[in-house]
Design a protein around this nucleic acid. Structure first.
Lengths: 223, 223
DNA sequence: TTGTGATTTATACAGTTGTTTTAATCGCTG
DNA sequence: CAGCGATTAAAACAACTGTATAAATCACAA
């Protein structure tokens, strides 16, 4: 059988998954060696092949973890903003999202992994889109559509949503440059993150109001 | 001497630089082999070590090329928008930048390289900041400050500028996902790019106007 | 206790990597 | 033409990679 067996099994398996997630996110699939993963996880070199067949098999499971984790954290943010007035809902969404991305306390290995998949897409990117993005896209779109006063399938909904998302994500990916443009000792403190969130929110709310005044546009998006 | 010598010399040297630029941008430093570069460039395996000492020596020269090219193309865009009214200047800047980034005709190897440096910074990133970003930051800042009606050293200038830059760059890095969210056969045609540029411009102009109404904020940026 | 299947271990293998070495080749000057 | 410095070429190096193999170890059931 495999009772206590299955436990010990799941233990190294899970240890490998956790270590691999962090290392893949930090350095990318091609720059992490199987030996490195196993060493950090305290397992033998052959452990990856035994439990996941391939280095790639391990990677695919890690990406699936990331997609699910991303979806969960998005749902959390959405539900935290539920019940507020439309404007405040957007403000809250932006603030929580930005903290999740920039706060040094949070470890955003999932976002890092996804950023790497966007830069060098593998077949695993489809999984991220299906399990990490599409499930919440309707609810996020509705948040913007409400502010725009347009139906969900107006192209402006997704353009505005992407404008917001772009601003949030940019501060994450642009961190290495921001740091170099800032005075020495600069850090993303909670107060600074709140300030950025405030800027993005007011900037975007005004943008949405202006776009709402334009003529309707059919969308090319499928959900 | 080294007259025709210097020519033949510069020829393989330059050939290596061009090939390396494209390959490094497309696949990243660690995923391009010296052998691959030399084969595409029609040179011997030892050519890289002879002309650039290291694989890293070659990379550093490529990054320097990218920084200079980025700066040049930025100056071009800025000067193309010169003389227009402030609003139209921003509209033009956004439109040209977006075309430079998304048009399949343009090959944006420099932006790709910089995106990779942002994700996995090496000492070469300093070079990009110094030679590719800082030289034009004053002129770009002025473009926004004029619209805001604030001095250049108000923090809102850079926040607004980054909001704009974020939207432009996001459509590039988000391409793999955009494609997966769009109906099959979707492409970034010039007309679609113009439409995106129009959205970003109007969205951002309204955002700037709203931010201009807020209270002044001292900047933490050094130029 | 003994046997059994799952897991772990140590070791080896073949392929690829960046780099070095040594010889060959080139174009020019004297 | 001889010779010289710069460039190219072929071959080899040691290090590292993912993976496969076979033996050892484990927890448990009979």
């Amino acid at each position: 059988m495999a009772t206590t067996r299955a436990i010990a099994n799941l233990e190294t398996r899970q240890r490998l998954l956790n270590v691999a997630a962090e290392l893949f996110a930090e350095h990318g699939f091609g720059h992490v060696t199987v030996r490195e993963i196993c060493q950090v996880a305290g397992a033998n070199v052959a452990a990856v092949n035994y439990h996941f067949r391939d280095k790639l098999g391990l990677y695919k499971e890690v990406v699936e973890m990331a997609a699910n984790a991303i979806n969960r954290s998005k749902v959390d943010v959405i539900e935290a903003a539920e019940g507020l007035a439309p404007e405040d809902r957007l403000r809250t969404y932006i603030r929580l999202t930005l903290h999740r991305l920039l706060d040094p306390e949070e470890d955003s290995w999932m976002e890092k992994l996804i950023a790497r998949e966007m830069m060098d897409p593998t077949p695993a990117l489809d999984l991220i889109v299906e399990k990490g993005i599409k499930p919440t896209s309707q609810r996020l779109g509705r948040m913007v559509a409400e502010l725009l006063g347009t139906p969900l399938d107006d192209a402006r909904v997704w353009q505005c949503f992407l404008s917001i998302q772009a601003q949030c994500l940019f501060y994450k990916s642009g961190k290495p440059i921001s740091v170099r443009m800032s005075p020495p000792g600069f850090r993303y403190t909670p107060e600074i993150i709140d300030g950025l969130a405030h800027h993005i929110a007011e900037f975007s709310l005004a943008g949405i109001r202006a776009i709402a005044a334009l003529k309707p546009q059919p969308t090319e998006w499928k959900l």
